[in-house]
Design a protein around this nucleic acid. Structure first.
Lengths: 339, 339
DNA sequence: GTGAAAGCGCTAACAA
DNA sequence: TTGTTAGCGCTTTCAC
């Protein structure tokens, strides 16, 4: 890499002259500016990022800590973050906590040594179970702002981007009730994390508003055979005529299994799941999905963080942004499910 | 963040003494070392990464350029890279090229300003179509090594990690032939990229070895309705009794569609697809999959890059590592498909 | 209009 | 054993 020093020597001017010329300082003579820029162009000079970071005490880099990159929703949020961050002139350093509290702590630690200006993260499962938040608070008190998305720690004062999980699930369940469904089940593979709980509560509320109904819930555990569990669940509960799935796999497997067991979808059973467009392709009929607009969530998180970084001195109050889901209806539910 | 300067002042010693003490230099007295370490611990001192990078002219950071993070295989490779890199003491800066040549060039450019020590990347689709490689060569000549994985540019001299796509597809197709299948189709949603072509060629070779057979190929385009295309393809070609799918969605949709059209899997039709474990859960029966061991690929790429970074002076020859796929057989093919 | 010098945080050669 | 100094690449204040 060419440095200012090298350019300066070659041009027989001082380093600071070169620096100023390249930064369009008024101080420098027109002719000099031209010469400097020409040579810089020729050598493809690019200011050294590390030196700039050191000097200006900011890296223009965001630390992103994702619990699980193989989760399609989280990958999509990452996509949104990356795109927005790039647009705003920031790079992202990605760490994967793998749902582990220790890895999360460690990532925070390692990047807080000057590598990044702030963090965007979704809380690891283990962290949520143990309800630990000190590492977040410590990071923030060190002057590194955090934006949390989706799985957030409510006890931590920081900017947040969340989904209206409770309302969305409540409304989806209401929709199935309005179709006339009487035995609606809730299937979840994400019972341990905050959003999973919110979804379950939204479902339960809608069900319990009918005095003659009770929630029917199937929780899948990590170690379970996902397909087998749902198969035997549907076999045992033959009267189930509706399913709300808290995660994409459960929704897909529910439809495919129901069809396989000879049920007609949506005649005999309606299915709605949290999933993305690509997922809905994996069933026939396509799965009706609650879309979380992951990319928007990511973009919002990036915007909030950058905004805070650029207004650190103002000490603004923390904000929570709610990104509304939308229900994309397909043939996995009855046509007129609104009265 | 606490700095050496602050510690030094508080302890009434010089900065270098503090530095040496923390780095366990033999030079410093036992007692001094103790005092320094104590205070450093108290203040939770961490050496400033940026300053270190500047000083040592290396960042211990790897630039990773992924064409598409929503592709499960690529996400999984990223996972493998991250884990191995972390293990080796490296961070990763992630850029997403979004299959665009310009974004790929730009990412390379931006990170080559001192932000990273080297790159791990998979070539963008547009880059492969236009067959551009200058930006890679330029980066390498600037002293930043590249490791390419999966989609590689053969004209670029650099380390590579690839999959035995050709052989794996050839063998899978042979397997179906050995079952006695006569009308085996190849379905691909990734016809434009190098690995897609390799897979098609592997399939074609196996088919053409039978003098009475012809390849039957369905290429899905980006703008197509994936489900519809496969549906009408299978409807039009009712005699198809085997499918090799080049990508995971095609495999899943093929099974679900076949079942939907009243075919028995695997009695009437066998299906094999490039897909991961999670995907195979999305069909009944489960999809027989060619596993690419994405995490292993990622880990290998990270190892190769770090090895090269740590042996830059040796100027070793470039290597290409082939990671073998494995075929995971399930009930989507006939039990005895080997003669 | 140009340059010298300080300083961001750190390491290391050299001096004391 | 400890301290001084220079230098990594850059910006910026202050002299000239």
């Amino acid at each position: 890499m060419v440095t200012l020093k090298q350019l300066a020597r070659e041009l027989n001017v001082s380093i600071s002259t070169v620096s100023k010329a390249l930064n369009n300082s008024e101080e420098i003579g027109e002719e000099t500016v031209r010469r400097v820029k020409e040579l810089a162009e020729l050598y493809n000079y690019k200011p050294n990022k590390v030196a700039l970071s050191l000097k200006q005490n900011k890296t223009k880099t965001i630390g992103v800590i994702i619990p699980n990159i193989l989760n399609h929703f989280l990958a999509k949020v990452l996509f949104g973050i990356e795109r927005e961050a790039t647009k705003l002139g920031y790079n992202i350093i990605t760490c994967i906590s793998n749902e582990s509290l220790d890895k999360e702590k460690e990532s925070l630690q390692i990047l807080a040594n000057g590598s990044v200006d702030g963090f965007i993260l979704s809380v690891a499962e283990e962290t949520q179970i143990k309800n630990e938040v000190d590492h977040f608070k410590k990071t923030i008190s060190q002057g590194l702002p955090i934006v949390m998305f989706d799985r957030v720690a409510h006890d931590v004062m920081c900017d947040k981007v969340i989904v209206d999980d409770f309302d969305a699930t409540y409304n989806a369940t209401k929709g199935l009730l309005n179709e006339g469904r009487k035995r609606i089940a809730f299937i979840s593979n994400i019972d341990q994390i905050s959003v999973g709980k919110l979804r379950e509560r939204g479902y339960a509320k809608a069900i319990l508003e009918n005095h003659d109904m009770e929630p029917i819930t199937l929780i899948i555990k990590k170690k379970d055979d996902h397909q087998k569990k749902i198969k035997s669940f549907l076999k045992k509960n033959k009267d189930i005529d509706g399913v709300i799935a808290a995660d994409s796999s459960s929704g897909i497997i529910a439809i495919n299994t129901a069809v396989n067991q000879g049920k007609k979808v949506p005649k005999d059973i309606s299915v709605i799941g949290y999933a993305s467009r690509a997922d809905s392709n994996h069933t026939l009929p396509r799965l009706t999905t609650i879309r979380q607009h992951a990319k928007v969530i990511g973009a919002n998180a990036a915007q909030m963080l950058v905004h805070r970084l650029q207004n650190m001195h103002l000490n603004e109050d923390v904000k929570t942004k709610i990104v509304k889901t939308s229900l994309v209806k397909t043939k996995s539910i009855l046509k007129e499910n609104n009265p």
